[in-house]
Design a protein around this nucleic acid. Structure first.
Lengths: 347, 347
DNA sequence: TTGTACGCGTTATCAA
DNA sequence: TTGATAACGCGTACAA
């Protein structure tokens, strides 16, 4: 036979294997899946035919018959910074360990138009149709799309989203850490603060951080927006913020990337960090440790977030209950040099 | 009717829609896909039924009938650093623009055991079965698995892999850039060099860089291995390398992360970069610009690599020829402070 | 313009 | 221990 024909993209079917082995397709299926009894000799024949024909069951056929996809999805806004990548690492690792494929969807660039065809909605629907369950990051998807997902009864885990009936939610702690950070900064003697971060939506991570900071600092802290949560945006916004007289003594950034941008801006303006202005971040990404000065930040367990989401989703898919449907993971204040001088050996 | 029944995960089928609209499933299909004529009134009825039942065609059913998955895969070693994430960004963006889903597979952690069941092979086969085409990074997958993929006639694009019949290959230029970098370092007057990077395989990116460097520097450069291409590995290896007397005057790193680790190590050893030791990287990741000193490096177009791979793969899937089956993208030497002092205003 | 009926590749039930 | 055969959900010739 023509070798190419065997390996054709269209694929060898179970019928060809059955014919070659001189058995029925039921026997082939049983042999391969280990379901039901198969005589030793028969088994050998089948396996040989499978090997010779390089047979791989058609995924679509299996999915249709089994009524499941053996794939899980994840929706995130983008993959530009380390944060979402880290969560994705944890998610992919656990999901593939569980024998399921990972289908990704980035909402970046798909504008949620107020009217008309919603590209995000369409993309999410498409994704939902090819997976057994979905992980969705908080504000990546319009509220009504989330409602729709919940209503569809598709197993759903929401990361960094307010607790919500019909879905498991999972997030890192924000408010208490923000309070702790604010107190630490007060301990340095700083008095005028800015909270620098992109426009945040009610209840999202950055909003909760802002609330915590605000609780402690009151009117001593002013919110300042950035275009995005990126180094560049942080840099641009910080340039404006730090220029001029009303300059804050400490800039509490929504995340590490904005903070790195702020440090760049300070440097460009000839300001010393932390001497002239203190800067803090959030997340504890790799670059936070390498920045000069090293960044004081709040570490959140990014990979664990992804790993736990994967496990919770698997439990949902299996129809098991999830022990804690709305879980918050602990964070840790990491004090480094960017918030001010600390006594050597000091804690 | 029970609302939950409508939205059941099992799913509404085209038959239910047809029944509700009082038409045949063929008409429903035609209406939704825009294939074939449908009377205006009929169309309305169908769309209403679709809306009311929240019908979404079963992906498995569609795939089986169409004989395609409308999904593309990508295999990478890991997502820890910015490099693969950036390539993935470009890939995802273009692929989803083309109306296809993206299925990812990280080979990290799946050991390619010399004998016995090969986890990578299995995972790749599984992935290959659920996509219409695949992008695979060079050394992520054993050679015989690549051969198998080629033999299977699955549309295949290899990134950072030697040109190979039966697959499209795509990579950034390495050797010439490495030569240029080496010449630049010679221009600084440096004389003793180390090339610091993980064990590389023949023909992979880092190997080509090493070859270019070696061509120019000859015996003046010594290769030194790291455990991985990470900051931590670079740090550890550089600590050993820079301690003691035989210390090189310049460390050419395989990539930016190893270079960042090297800078950390130098700092820890009380060495000034670039005064005591020059350091260079490769890739031009975000952190390269923010390092102190800023990192001299070779920029490669990471997102474009992913975007082009996506487009080439799409062409293969469509059965079109790819204009340039083995393409090499240009890189750019980015000179910053880490390789030595440059005259202000100098190029 | 619409409907019938077959095919896509599996799994799994039920007889034999 | 094995083999027919009915789903699974959809697309689409072909006939009407």
């Amino acid at each position: 036979m023509d070798e190419r024909a065997d390996a054709q993209a269209g694929g060898v079917t179970i019928y060809e294997v059955a014919q070659r082995a001189g058995v029925s397709i039921a026997t082939v299926s049983r042999t391969l899946r280990g379901t039901g009894p198969v005589a030793g000799a028969t088994r050998e024949k089948v396996l040989r035919a499978v090997e010779e024909l390089r047979f791989t069951p058609s995924r679509a056929g299996v999915s249709l018959a089994e009524g499941r996809h053996a794939a899980n999805g994840i929706v995130f806004p983008n993959l530009s910074g380390p944060y979402f990548a880290e969560v994705l690492i944890g998610y992919e690792e656990v999901t593939s360990e569980l024998g399921r494929s990972v289908v990704i969807l980035s909402t970046k660039g798909r504008e949620p138009t107020p009217r008309g065809t919603d590209a995000i909605r369409d993309a999410v629907r498409e994704l939902a149709g090819r997976v057994d369950g979905l992980v969705v990051f908080g504000s990546t998807v319009p509220g009504d799309v989330v409602e729709e997902l919940v209503a569809s009864r598709l197993p759903l885990v929401l990361i960094s989203h307010a607790p919500m009936p019909g879905a498991v939610t999972l997030r890192s702690e924000n408010t208490a850490s923000a309070r702790a950070l604010a107190h630490h900064l007060l301990g340095h003697g700083h008095a005028e603060f800015a909270f620098l971060g992109a426009p945040y939506a009610t209840g999202d991570d950055v909003d909760l951080r802002w609330q915590g900071v605000r609780e402690v600092l009151g009117d001593a802290v002013q919110p300042v927006l950035t275009a995005e949560y990126t180094v560049e945006s942080g840099y641009q916004a910080a340039l404006r913020l730090l220029r001029g007289a009303g300059r804050p003594r400490a800039v509490i950034c929504s995340d590490d990337e904005v903070a790195l941008g702020t440090i760049l801006a300070a440097e460009e303006l000839g300001l010393s960090v932390p001497h002239d202005v203190a800067v803090t971040g959030w997340d504890d990404i790799m670059a936070a440790r390498h920045a000069r000065p090293a960044l004081t930040t709040v570490r959140q367990p990014m990979r664990e977030l992804g790993a736990r989401a994967a496990r919770a989703l698997d439990a949902l898919i299996a129809g098991l209950g999830v022990e804690d449907a709305h879980r918050t993971l602990d964070t840790e204040l990491i004090v480094r040099g960017s918030c001010g001088p600390h006594p050597p050996g000091g804690h």
